[in-house]
Design a protein around this nucleic acid. Structure first.
Lengths: 260, 260
DNA sequence: CGGAGGCTTGAACGCTCTCAAACGATGTGG
DNA sequence: CCACATCGTTTGAGAGCGTTCAAGCCTCCG
């Protein structure tokens, strides 16, 4: 692969569409605007006019909806390499707000331009549809989880899903030539990027799972006592992945394959 | 509009994309297979290979997921004119099963053909993306509802949403020249198609809302006692729509606008 | 007339919430 | 360097909402 390939937003690779030279040029030619956002800053609010979608370059952020009483529901959490607000391509306003959890770097793409440009190419159209469909599958999974599983199951499933996405995020970010090679670069900051450590405030987990922070804490306490996780250090350290998977009790379907 | 227009699946009109003669020809040229399904029959099961998506011509059906313990979660309910399994365009298997609630007529379209053909046209690509995005918005709404609202709110909201979709379904089915004219045809079967009557088993409502059938019944009983609905006749007759809307307590956002 | 499926209602249990109060880490200003 | 504020975590007690189990009823239909 050449230099141009490395400029392509890394997440695109995940969708199995082999882009030709022509499509790569199109994608690389897109207008983009990269900016830095401090921790806990609001990138956009729900109901604001929506002109861009974003790719997370660095940091962690989440989409959310505010409810009347002051509580909020977190729709999804995004890690580096993931794309935010893809589902809003055809909306004129934001269906949910976007807030950063840590200092973040985001790249904004113009929705109108992307839609128009992508629709010109059948390969890119397919790619876009695949990406949106994947979001849809994740959302369906989450819906079933919220409706039918208890706090223990939801929490265990959540921890595993976040772990999976952190891993995927790391993998995706080593894009370019190194992707297929077995060569793995050393992790730069073991404390921040350590594997199997979920570093999210319990209040955020609660808002994502539709639970109270107090009860999330209680469930995590149970998991700690049962030896599944470790809470003595900052963050949630996953110890027994199979055990958590057993608690989650969800079929392996949620590890969603892509493409068709 | 000419005869060709009337052959176009009516739901496409809802998305505001003005199709040119050329696109209409493409859409009308799609392979399709219309079949009749008796009440309570399974059209496809989850995890089965997925080759088609369906348009509901007549009847009511729903998509669902089965859980280990034997319970099920209903993902969505579909009325005439609506499209099923659109989100599975890029999947090779069904993420959820499809079952009929009443005697139904469904038209199957080949997923691969539709994807390929639609991706050739930028207008149709956009249309497809808009339709999928709309599904996404609905799903997000449902997610927030499940996570953050109590049984009364969810039930009230559900009744209003179903009413809205039944109305929309009726409107969409009078496609063609009559669409824009104020002329409204008489309803043929007032008992079956009466406005403001939701004819769904309470067990189905429960499975859609993530509640037990017993508790749905209790909530409906409350609504009856409070004068919002009437249960003396078969089905649920909505009496006080504003009242129900007040209970639902959701912003008007769920009456989702389309296009961007 | 009898059976089946859906609806209705009661009682008790249990999961999760709210309220409340500490605790610990972190950061800030005196 | 310490006092203090703040934020996130932890734990307890009590209340509420929805569940399960169980039984009876109604209605449609054979």
């Amino acid at each position: 692969m050449d230099k141009e390939t490395q400029q392509v937003p890394s997440d695109f690779f995940e969708y199995g569409a082999l882009l030709s030279e022509r499509e790569l040029l199109i994608v690389n030619g897109l207008d983009r605007c990269t900016a830095r956002y401090p921790k806990n800053s609001i990138v956009f609010r729900e109901d604001e006019p929506s002109e861009h979608f974003y790719m997370v370059e660095d940091g962690v952020c989440f989409t959310h909806r505010h409810l009347e009483e002051g509580s909020r529901q977190i729709i999804d959490i995004y890690f580096p390499g993931e794309i935010v607000a893809l589902d809003e391509l055809s909306r004129s306003d934001h269906g949910s707000g976007l807030t950063t959890l840590s200092d973040s770097v985001l790249t904004a793409y113009d929705k109108t331009e992307v839609t128009q440009v992508f629709c010109q190419s059948s390969v890119l159209s397919r790619l876009l549809i695949n990406m949106i469909s994947r979001e849809h599958a994740i959302l369906t999974e989450r819906l079933v989880g919220l409706a039918r599983y208890c706090a223990r199951q939801r929490t265990a499933n959540f921890l595993l899903e976040i772990r999976h996405r952190i891993e995927r995020s790391k993998r995706v970010r080593q894009h370019g030539p190194n992707r297929t090679a077995g060569k793995v670069q050393d992790i730069r900051e073991p404390t921040r990027q350590a594997p199997d450590v979920v570093r999210l405030p319990q209040a955020v987990i609660a808002d994502a799972l539709g639970l109270s922070a107090v009860h999330v804490n209680r469930v995590l306490g149970q998991f700690r006592d049962e030896g599944y996780i470790d809470l003595s250090r900052p963050g949630i350290t996953l110890i027994d992945l199979e055990g958590l998977d057993g608690i989650a009790g969800l079929n392996s379907r949620n590890r969603l394959g892509m493409m068709g």
